[in-house]
Design a protein around this nucleic acid. Structure first.
Length: 422
RNA sequence: GUGGGUGUGGCCUAAUGGUUAAGGCACCUGGUUGUGGCCCAGGAGAUUGUGGGUUCGAGUCCCACCACUCACCCCA
């Protein structure tokens, strides 16, 4: 048992996992850039209050999942549990409202939530985050949804399900919440203990309950869609019209509510199978009030966060392949002190010419070096011994066929460039 | 925070409560003076998660803790 282990809920992403990560990251960034999103990197930690006010003091994330600490200056800081609050803070702080609106930003990196780990859930995990700030056009909501659509489809996911709802705005939601509460109070004897608690802390969440006894109550509950104000209803109708126009299948889910306080109007999730109990591979929506809450100019905005670990788990469950990260094609083996020097020189020369090269270390027998070359997956072994050195050549062994040819040291780089396609 | 499952070399697994904890994979060396994969031989690598307890004797039984894992809450 090692003396030190990784902290609970964290993951070491080992070399053999990296092909997934490279592929997913590269694909995500390609899609974001082609839709005009620019990258922004915000700090991994921010003032605690930014998250408390942005996400909502009564949410689970803020109440029990934040990594909060005091720095030596006595400031309360928190490892970001999501990107949006920090990105909106940066938007305000750098006066980005004077740029051509809207501003489209993407971020990718680790986020942190103190939670009990389970399949698809970690204390440090990674998100791709997309935000469109400065427009309330439903076309922006559409664009965000289309982008994650292409993200999953382009990676090869099948059987995805897009869940869509509108949860209204500060003008219409409070009245609906009251309606829902009074409806639930009339059925309080039929619902589960959790829902009785939710009714007080976060009433909308009762719609999301999975307890069997609550299902009939949820079925008969008043749907929020019937109680949106004109603006919200119109916005939602336009978004659905776009989606229908583009032939994108989605499920209207009036039970879809989301755990963060800042959402207004549009909320959506993408569900995928194969990640244990976790269905959502991404979640997002519109947050027209957040910038003002954080002390900035009123800025309507919409965004989404996609969990990279869940994407990769889903890909593995669906056996979606990724291109391998090839090892250096050339392995340099050597025999004798002078040959070793020449090999070191050649390794440098090959790499400068753009050819991946692995130099054998130590003074070992040729058999041992060839075994190593084989295990490292080299395509060619460049072998230099005293004999070759005396003739100014290297023996180049094709590891696939076993054929061996002598190549002049001066021509070696060009010879290998031709064969390794550089 | 709650509940279930699981902890034996890097990985997978074996060991009626009874010698020195066994095997496979992987790793290293050798089977050629300078030639990989297959094969053969050898080597290194474990105070059996930690700490207590029961017992003449514990990897094995009991307790606690820790970790991993799955699920709940909630979320990506």
């Amino acid at each position: 048992m090692p003396r030190f282990q990784r902290p609970t809920g964290t993951l070491d992403i080992l070399p053999e996992e990296q092909s997934y990560w490279e592929h997913v990251r590269a694909h995500a960034i390609r899609l974001a850039r082609r839709a005009g999103f620019e990258r922004i990197d915000v700090p991994v930690f921010e003032a605690t209050d930014l998250f408390a006010r942005g996400i909502g003091a009564a949410t689970d994330v803020v109440e029990k999942e934040m990594y909060t600490f005091n720095d030596k200056g006595g400031n309360s800081l928190t490892l970001r549990p999501e990107f949006t609050a920090g990105v909106v803070r940066a938007y305000i702080e750098h006066g980005m409202h004077v740029r051509p609106q809207p501003v489209k930003l993407y971020s990718i990196g680790p986020v942190f939530r103190y939670d009990r780990p389970q399949a698809g859930r970690y204390r440090q995990f990674h998100q791709l985050n997309l935000e469109i700030l400065g427009t309330q056009d439903p076309a922006a909501d559409l664009e965000i949804m289309l982008l994650v659509w292409d993200l999953y489809a382009g990676l090869g996911f099948r059987g995805l399900s897009f869940q869509l709802n509108s949860t209204g705005c500060p003008r219409c939601r409070p009245a609906y919440v009251e309606l829902l509460k009074s409806y639930y109070h009339r059925h309080v004897d039929q619902i589960c203990d959790d829902c009785r608690r939710r009714l007080e802390t976060n009433p909308l969440r009762v719609l999301d309950c999975k307890a069997a006894q609550c299902q009939p109550v949820i079925e008969a509950a008043p749907p929020i869609g019937d109680h949106l104000c004109d603006e919200c209803a119109d916005h939602f109708a336009q978004l659905r019209e776009y989606l229908d126009l583009l032939g994108k299948p989605y499920t209207l889910n009036h039970r879809l509510v989301r755990g963060l306080d800042y959402y207004t109007k549009t909320v959506f999730e993408v569900w995928a199978a194969g990640i244990g109990a976790q269905a959502a591979v991404c979640g997002g929506g519109r947050y027209d009030g957040l910038a003002e809450i954080l002390g900035g100019p009123s800025t309507p905005a919409v965004g989404v966060a996609a969990g990279l670990e869940r994407i990769i788990l889903g890909m593995k469950a669906q056996e979606v392949g990724v291109p391998p990260l090839p090892p250096p094609p050339v392995f340099l083996a050597h025999l004798g002190p002078e040959a070793r020097q020449e090999a070191a020189r050649l390794a440098d020369g090959l790499r400068r010419a753009g050819i991946g090269a692995w130099l054998a270390f130590g003074e070992r027998g040729l058999k041992s070096q060839l075994r190593e070359a084989n295990k490292r997956g080299a395509s060619y072994v460049v072998l230099i011994g005293e004999d070759e050195l005396a003739q100014g050549v290297a023996a180049v062994r094709d590891m696939r066929t076993g054929e061996q040819t002598e190549v002049g040291l001066a021509e070696l780089v060009g010879w290998l460039q031709e064969r390794t396609g550089r």
